[in-house]
Amino acid sequence: MVEFKVTTERQTQLLDITQLVREAVASGQGSAAVVYVPHTTAGVTINEHADPAVARDFETALERIVPSDWPWEHIEEGEENAPTHIRAAFMGPSVLIPMRDDGTLALGTWQGIFFCEFDGPRERSVLVSVLQ
């Protein structure tokens, strides 16, 4: 398993981590790579990474789908982050990416891997494991 850190700059932010994941799996041969985010207010997804507007659209859409001004029941003083848990659950904590025989990720031409921050800015961990 390889662990790397990402640092976010905004409360809601999608970061393209494709190259970091490629580097994490570069030394291993396997059938697939698991990318896992061990946080309840962050997630990971695969989507288009050729146009940065796609990530910004995701950020805006998730904030509109799960607005902060609902009467949330999960309220911790100083940590009013109930909607961030819901947004993270929509994205999910992990993705599974098949690997080619040469050890590279079998992503589509336009696909990238995104770390999804919903309670930033923070430093976060991303775990990558190659399955044999």
Rank of each mutant, 00 (worst) to 15 (best):
78 G>S: 07
44 V>I: 12
101 D>N: 03
40 T>P: 09
39 H>S: 02
102 D>V: 02
101 D>F: 08
61 A>P: 00
64 R>K: 14
70 W>Y: 12
57 D>P: 03
129 S>I: 13
23 E>T: 07
30 G>N: 09
115 F>S: 05
48 E>P: 10
52 P>V: 02
93 P>T: 14
24 A>S: 12
24 A>G: 09
71 P>K: 11
15 L>Q: 09
36 Y>E: 02
89 A>Y: 08
123 E>N: 08
83 P>G: 02
7 T>E: 13
112 G>R: 06
101 D>L: 14
77 E>N: 14
62 L>K: 02
12 T>G: 01
109 T>R: 11
54 V>N: 07
94 S>R: 12
51 D>C: 15
52 P>C: 03
53 A>W: 09
63 E>C: 09
55 A>C: 03
55 A>M: 02
107 L>H: 00
82 A>D: 01
2 V>A: 08
101 D>R: 15
126 V>P: 02
58 F>I: 05
35 V>C: 00
70 W>Q: 15
38 P>C: 01
5 K>W: 05
93 P>R: 12
54 V>E: 10
42 A>Q: 03
60 T>A: 14
75 I>Q: 13
9 E>A: 14
77 E>G: 05
12 T>H: 13
84 T>E: 00
79 E>M: 11
34 V>K: 13
47 N>T: 12
112 G>V: 01
17 I>C: 06
98 P>C: 02
130 V>P: 04
127 L>S: 12
126 V>M: 10
123 E>K: 12
19 Q>I: 07
46 I>S: 03
21 V>L: 10
71 P>R: 10
13 Q>A: 00
102 D>Q: 10
8 T>A: 12
100 R>Q: 13
104 T>M: 08
28 G>R: 15
83 P>H: 00
105 L>M: 02
42 A>D: 00
56 R>M: 10
110 W>K: 14
6 V>C: 07
21 V>D: 06
86 I>N: 12
86 I>Y: 02
82 A>Q: 02
114 F>W: 01
127 L>F: 15
105 L>A: 05
6 V>D: 05
64 R>P: 05
5 K>M: 15
104 T>P: 06
122 R>A: 10
96 L>E: 11
44 V>A: 03
19 Q>G: 08
27 S>C: 06
31 S>T: 15
72 W>P: 01
84 T>R: 00
117 E>Y: 03
49 H>P: 04
111 Q>I: 01
109 T>G: 13
111 Q>P: 09
1 M>H: 05
66 V>K: 04
87 R>D: 00
4 F>D: 01
88 A>P: 04
78 G>F: 03
109 T>P: 09
120 G>A: 04
39 H>T: 07
129 S>C: 07
31 S>W: 07
25 V>W: 06
1 M>Q: 11
121 P>D: 07
77 E>D: 12
15 L>W: 01
115 F>N: 09
105 L>I: 08
89 A>G: 12
102 D>P: 06
21 V>Y: 10
54 V>C: 08
89 A>P: 11
104 T>K: 15
36 Y>T: 13
1 M>Y: 11
78 G>D: 12
74 H>D: 06
52 P>L: 07
113 I>M: 08
55 A>Y: 05
22 R>N: 15
123 E>Q: 13
63 E>A: 07
38 P>T: 07
40 T>C: 08
26 A>G: 08
106 A>L: 09
8 T>D: 07
47 N>Y: 04
86 I>W: 03
19 Q>L: 11
10 R>H: 09
23 E>G: 14
7 T>F: 09
54 V>T: 08
48 E>W: 06
123 E>T: 15
105 L>G: 04
3 E>N: 14
